[in-house]
Simulated assay, not measured.
Amino acid sequence: MASSSVKIESILGILTIRLNDINNTKWAFQFNSVSKGYKLFDHFDGTSVCPSKFVINFIRFET
């Protein structure tokens, strides 16, 4: 199974609206649409837990 990685720069390049005090609703709609398109929205609303930053392998040595 091939894993795909999405860089934050590519997501920010898709957002055409710059967030300011006036256009919060339009920006939020566009951000939600893009994050749902990349299947990342669950990480923002707390439904899905982000994976750990580090992989911990426990090596057991037999004596």
Rank of each mutant, 00 (worst) to 15 (best):
Val6Glu: 12
Val6Gln: 14
Val6Met: 09
Lys7Asp: 15
Ile8Trp: 09
Ile8Arg: 08
Glu9Ala: 08
Glu9Thr: 11
Glu9Asp: 15
Ser10Val: 03
Ile11Cys: 01
Ile11Glu: 10
Ile11Leu: 11
Ile11Asn: 00
Ile11Arg: 04
Leu12Val: 02
Leu12Ser: 06
Leu12Tyr: 08
Leu12Asp: 10
Gly13Ser: 04
Gly13Asp: 04
Ile14Glu: 14
Ile14Gly: 08
Ile14Trp: 11
Leu15Pro: 08
Leu15Asp: 06
Leu15Thr: 06
Leu15Tyr: 01
Leu15Cys: 13
Leu15Arg: 11
Thr16Lys: 06
Ile17Val: 09
Ile17Ser: 05
Ile17Gly: 02
Asn20Lys: 05
Asn20Gly: 09
Asp21Leu: 07
Asp21Met: 12
Asp21His: 11
Ile22Gln: 15
Ile22Cys: 13
Ile22Trp: 02
Ile22Ala: 15
Asn23Lys: 03
Asn23Cys: 05
Asn23Thr: 04
Asn23Val: 01
Asn24Pro: 00
Asn24Phe: 00
Asn24Tyr: 00
Asn24Arg: 14
Asn24Leu: 09
Thr25Ser: 09
Thr25His: 05
Thr25Lys: 10
Lys26Ile: 14
Trp27Tyr: 14
Trp27Leu: 07
Ala28Gly: 02
Phe29Thr: 13
Phe29Ser: 11
Gln30Pro: 03
Gln30Thr: 05
Gln30Arg: 06
Gln30Lys: 11
Gln30Trp: 07
Phe31Tyr: 13
Phe31Pro: 01
Phe31Ile: 04
Asn32Cys: 00
Ser33Met: 04
Ser33Cys: 06
Ser33Val: 02
Val34Arg: 06
Val34Gly: 00
Val34Pro: 02
Ser35Glu: 04
Ser35Arg: 09
Lys36Asp: 04
Lys36Leu: 05
Lys36Thr: 09
Gly37Val: 07
Gly37Glu: 12
Gly37Thr: 08
Tyr38Ile: 02
Tyr38Cys: 10
Tyr38Ala: 10
Lys39Cys: 06
Leu40Val: 04
Phe41Gly: 09
Asp42Cys: 15
His43Gln: 08
His43Asp: 10
Phe44Tyr: 09
Phe44Pro: 11
Phe44Asp: 14
Gly46Ser: 05
Thr47Asn: 13
Thr47Ile: 08
Thr47Asp: 09
Ser48Asn: 14
Ser48Asp: 06
Ser48Arg: 15
Val49His: 02
Val49Phe: 00
Cys50Pro: 05
Cys50Lys: 00
Cys50Trp: 00
Cys50Val: 01
Pro51His: 06
Pro51Arg: 03
Pro51Leu: 02
Pro51Gln: 07
Pro51Phe: 01
Pro51Gly: 13
Ser52Asn: 11
Ser52Lys: 12
Ser52Met: 06
